[in-house]
Design a protein around this nucleic acid. Structure first.
Length: 966
RNA sequence: GCCGAAGUGGCGGAAUUGGUAGACGCGCUGGAUUCAAAAUCCAGUUCUGGCAACAGAGUGUGGGUUCGAUUCCCACCUUCGGUACCA
């Protein structure tokens, strides 16, 4: 029978579904193992070839673990709420619920065809009310909780209220927005609204003010992604920041546990390092500076360098700092206003990355130095962010690069306070040296000076030692339609309205159907327009913001354990069995966002005694990104043809010339080794499907291309193009390739469907693995797929002769067993260390060797087939049944390595002399060093290289190498 | 800017703990088969010199540690990801 993959892929897909081959039970005698993929965001262009890289890898690992006797949970679902889905829907003129449903259907079809072993009965979709009911429920748990820093865990709000009733804030050590102090009597005297406002200061899900991008021309709030260089990406309109009251999650309460937990998980060091840096713990001091002439009013700064207090020559507030308006003097008002206008158009990223141009404005106010009582000017500058620390700094130009640049630019004095002469090579920012010009800390080392100043400011009651985190609370509101509605109502419609949780029994709070769900022109969220939904009959009002994309993805891995439970987010029994994710695989782009938020949610659930584990993901691997190959054609006007030396060979009178390849400086095009064109050149994108795998655009395709793209209809392929000619006499031009993110807008998306149709899913799976290490990013290139295709056919042909199945029951030879068991060892090792590309190589080597021995023995092919089953689930299933086996190969048992078959007793040692490999000598592995030395030194090639010199050292590394030092 | 990763033949990559650089595959070259092509098979293929034996160079760049460095250390260059409202 011929190798008809289309037929048997259909057959086995159906078989697996009918027999529930991949159905997972929540309880078996087998040990459990939970393999999780980061679920995809179902975009309109379907699954592209980058997605399956991680999915195939985790599928191989899951199948391997199953064959090894584990009960493996390997689910899949869809992260279906979010901004792009809403925009796609708007563009299509369809409702996002419909487009999302369609997109999911496409994704599922594609994933099925790739032979993934998901238990689809456990599928979750974050936009499904039966799912987001529990996202809303989780939000309400956080709304009704506070973080007790004494017990170091979240507690129900009622325990906090009890404390307030008994003792006020006395003895309360809570994560809070701002420090509050009141007595029990004061608390009891507060009215309901006042008490609610106080509680908001402690809730884990709380309301506060923050800024969003707003585009007046589009009349809508924009995401950071939609703002480029201070303009809206759509339409290039002006944008500005607006202050809105929004929901936040108090992630900072968990900063220390998020940091500590990193020591307990099996993640790459780089990933943990990124999270550590994101959390950004720093030790320093908080200090209060009095403002001159403002009746003793103070402001708080945070510094990691309290030792440099005597070098302070100015203060800097964030432009958003609440004191700016109040302290600005009349004469500085205009300068400050102008500066604020400038900052309002700057993104946080621009503000952070700007190092070349220093900007700022003087408020006209002065702070008073706590020790010297000197008057220090207070400036504002974009390099101080409101969201970090207290939004105010003491500037020390002698010991901080940015402060130094600022002082330089604005002519502010610089006072040297640290003598670094004992540390040659130390830079300005290094925390080392001896204090000078610093009053009572003169002569102290930096480290000691920090301690002394911290004690002193504490004693003077103007500050104290403090730990600060860079981590910020997570903004949890979006002024969008396509997200989870907040289960929150307000009695009062005003800006200051107090939020109340809706009854848990009312969940899910369904997102209302809206015909027009576009953002409103006045910047109000779309839901504000759904008046019937928003305005309740009892006179209360619903929250009209929705939750962000990461709400649903912060806990989805728990729902897979028990996806249809209507009474709980997941049952205790399911949690007891599966506990948490053993192996998580997904893109490195989620390194901080998703992985910080979902860890925080998990820790919160732990505090609520809902889950048992502190960390959700034991082992984590990031797959690299598959980049797209974009192609460009260049179009030249007024061209001159040059040779390699730049001499003009010919003037070109034709107005248009389409040529190819590299553009240098926008006006020089290299046609081939010896010919260049000089002229005004412009590039156009060419959708990749026009070109062949080498980036060649052939004449017939070129004609189609210019017919479809209007700007080029005037091009005559006969007159205006310099064609190259290939070996078959076909004319083509070579396009300029560029590696970019794979994206529909770049015309470079490659869809796996065509490749699966052309080569079969197994070849596609193995080819994706063969591309390289799973963690590495690489451009998509299909050039090598024929090699994998040939390999699968060779494997097939081992058991086929003249298209008929043909295996022998003869006893295997020693050599054949050695080949098999070497492969078992290699593949098992490589799967364990997630090196799937080398597994494919190992299979190729194995099949090549068996092929050269014409081995068609059942005793070899049967275990080899099981070994390959995780990689090529369809082909191996087909062979398995041809071998006469009952049931699915994917429920078989993994072959066991027998070391006896692969034992070596001799090794061909490379002999290195003076750092070069000069000879190879085969020697027994049993020999001791003396025996080896005798044999090696007796060798004539070795003698030639030693050339009578003295052998200074003779190094033998058993089974590895011999090195002779002369 | 800051944080993280990567850089090895014409190309994707291998070298697992510091021990033979280039496994495996693509491409290319030559040959077999064929009326011819496709497919298949065989041989070769890091670069330079040489008919060859062989010699020299060689893992982004420049230094260093070591008997020995793709691997460890220092400085730099380039590309990619993230940078808190894309997910």
């Amino acid at each position: 029978m011929e190798f008809n993959y289309t037929e048997f892929e259909q057959k086995w897909q159906k078989y697996w579904e009918e027999n529930n081959t991949y159905k997972v039970e929540n309880n078996t005698d087998r040990p459990k193992y939970y393999v999780l993929d980061m679920f995809p965001y179902p975009s309109g262009s379907g699954l592209h070839v980058g997605h399956p890289l991680g999915y195939i890898a985790s599928d191989i690992y899951s199948r391997y673990k199953r064959l090894k006797g584990f009960n493996v949970l390997h689910p899949m679902g869809f992260d279906a709420f979010g901004l792009p889905a809403e925009q796609y829907a708007i563009k299509q003129g369809k409702h996002p619920a419909r487009t999302t449903e369609e997109n999911i259907a496409t994704y599922k079809k594609q994933l099925r065809s790739l032979g993934m072993s998901y238990d689809w009965s456990r599928e979750v979709k974050t936009c499904d009310p039966s799912y987001y009911k529990w996202t809303q429920w989780a939000f309400l748990q956080m709304f009704d909780s506070w973080y007790n820093q004494n017990t170091n865990q979240a507690e129900k709000l009622e325990t906090l209220v009890a404390k307030f009733e008994a003792n006020g804030t006395e003895g309360v050590n809570a994560a809070e927005t701002e420090a509050l102090n009141f007595t029990a009597e004061e608390w009891q005297a507060m009215d309901e609204t006042a008490q609610q406002k106080v509680l908001m200061n402690y809730r884990l899900a709380y309301l506060d003010y923050s800024e969003v991008w707003f585009c007046p021309a589009l009349g809508t709030v924009l995401a950071n992604d939609e703002v480029k260089d201070g303009k809206s990406e759509r339409g290039d309109h002006d944008v500005e920041k607006r202050r809105l009251r929004q929901w936040f999650l108090r992630v900072t309460a968990y900063a220390e546990r998020l940091l500590g937990g990193l020591e307990t998980v099996d993640w790459s060091e780089s990933m943990r390092e990124m999270q550590r840096n994101w959390i950004g713990k720093s030790h320093g001091a908080s200090m209060f500076f009095e403002i001159d002439g403002h009746n003793g009013k103070t402001f708080e700064i945070f510094t990691t360098r309290p030792d440099t207090i005597f070098g302070v020559t100015f203060m800097v507030l964030a432009p958003e700092h609440e004191l700016v308006q109040e302290i600005t003097s009349d004469s500085q008002k205009q300068a400050i206003e102008e500066y604020l206008e400038y900052v309002n158009k700057r993104s946080e990223r621009e503000r952070m990355s700007e190092v070349k141009v220093v900007t700022g404005a003087f408020t006209g106010a002065y702070a008073i130095h706590p020790f010297t009582k000197a008057k220090i000017p207070i400036w504002i500058s974009e390099y101080v962010l409101a969201s970090y620390g207290t939004g105010a700094i003491m500037a020390v130009p002698s010991d901080d690069d940015r402060d130094n640049a600022f002082a330089d630019k604005f002519g502010i004095p610089i006072v040297d306070i640290i003598d670094k002469s004992d540390y040659p090579g130390a830079t300005r920012d290094d925390k080392i040296g001896k204090m000078i010009n610093s009053d009572f800390i003169n002569g102290l080392e930096v480290k000691d000076a920090i301690k002394v100043i911290c004690d002193k400011v504490e004693e003077m009651k103007v500050g104290k030692a403090k730990i600060n985190y860079r981590l910020r609370d997570a903004g949890f509101s979006r002024q969008r339609y396509w997200g989870e509605p907040f289960p929150i109502v307000y009695k009062d419609d005003s800006e200051e309205g107090v939020p109340y949780a809706i009854d848990i029994n009312e969940l899910p709070l369904i997102l209302p159907e809206m015909e027009d769900f576009r953002p409103q022109k006045d910047g109000q969220p779309p839901l504000a327009k759904a008046e019937h939904w928003r305005n309740l009959t009892n006179g209360t009002f619903r929250e009209t913001d929705t939750m962000p994309g990461y709400a649903g993805s912060s806990w989805y891995f728990l729902r897979y354990m028990d996806p249809h439970n209507e009474d709980a987010f997941v049952s205790q029994e399911a949690l007891d069995y599966w506990e948490s994710v053993d192996f998580y695989i997904g893109g490195a782009e989620h390194a901080v966002g998703h992985l910080i938020y979902s860890r925080m949610w998990h820790k919160f659930f732990k505090d609520m005694s809902l889950v048992k584990t502190e960390e959700p993901y034991k082992k984590l691997v990031n797959q690299g990104m598959i980049q797209g190959q974009s192609l460009f054609i260049s179009f030249c006007e007024d061209a001159k043809k040059l040779d390699r030396d730049g001499d003009v060979v010919a003037e070109i009178n034709d107005f248009n010339k389409f040529v190819s390849h590299q553009i240098d400086g926008g006006n020089e095009v290299k046609i081939d080794k010896d010919t260049y064109v000089l002229g005004k050149c412009k590039e156009h994108r060419v959708p990749i499907h026009y070109a062949d795998v080498h980036g060649r655009l052939y004449k017939d395709q070129f004609t189609k291309y210019i017919n479809e793209y209007k700007e080029m209809t005037h091009v005559d392929p006969e007159k205006n193009v310099w064609w190259k000619v290939d070996g078959n006499g076909e004319e083509y031009i070579l396009l300029r390739p560029e590696v970019e993110k794979m994206s529909k807008s770049k015309y470079n998306v490659v869809n796996p469907d065509d490749m699966v149709a052309q080569y079969g899913a197994d070849v596609f799976r193995m080819f994706e693995m063969f591309l390289g290490p799973i963690e590495q990013s690489k451009p998509w290139d299909t050039k090598g797929i024929s090699g994998v295709s040939k390999f699968i056919r060779k494997y097939w042909n081992l058991s086929h002769k003249n298209e008929a199945f043909n295996v022998s029951d003869d006893e295997p030879t020693k050599e054949e067993l050695k080949i098999l068991h070497q492969t078992i060892k290699k593949v098992e090792d490589d799967i364990e260390r997630l090196s799937f590309n080398t597994c494919v190589s190992a299979f190729m080597v194995c099949v090549n060797e068996l092929n050269s021995k014409k081995c068609n023995k059942r005793s070899i092919l049967e275990p080899l087939t099981v070994l390959m089953a995780p990689f090529a689930p369809y082909t191996t299933e087909e062979i398995w049944h041809k071998l006469g086996k009952e049931g699915s190969i994917h429920q078989a048992t993994y072959p066991v390595l027998n070391e006896e078959y692969i034992k070596e007793d001799a090794f061909e040692y490379p002999i290195m002399i003076k750092g070069k490999m000069r000879a190879k000598i085969e020697m027994s592995l049993d020999w001791d060093e003396a025996a080896v030395k005798d044999k090696v030194l007796a060798d004539e090639r070795v003698q030639k290289w030693i050339n009578g010199d003295e052998v200074k050292r003779f190094i033998l590394v058993k089974g590895r190498i011999v090195n002779i030092v002369i």
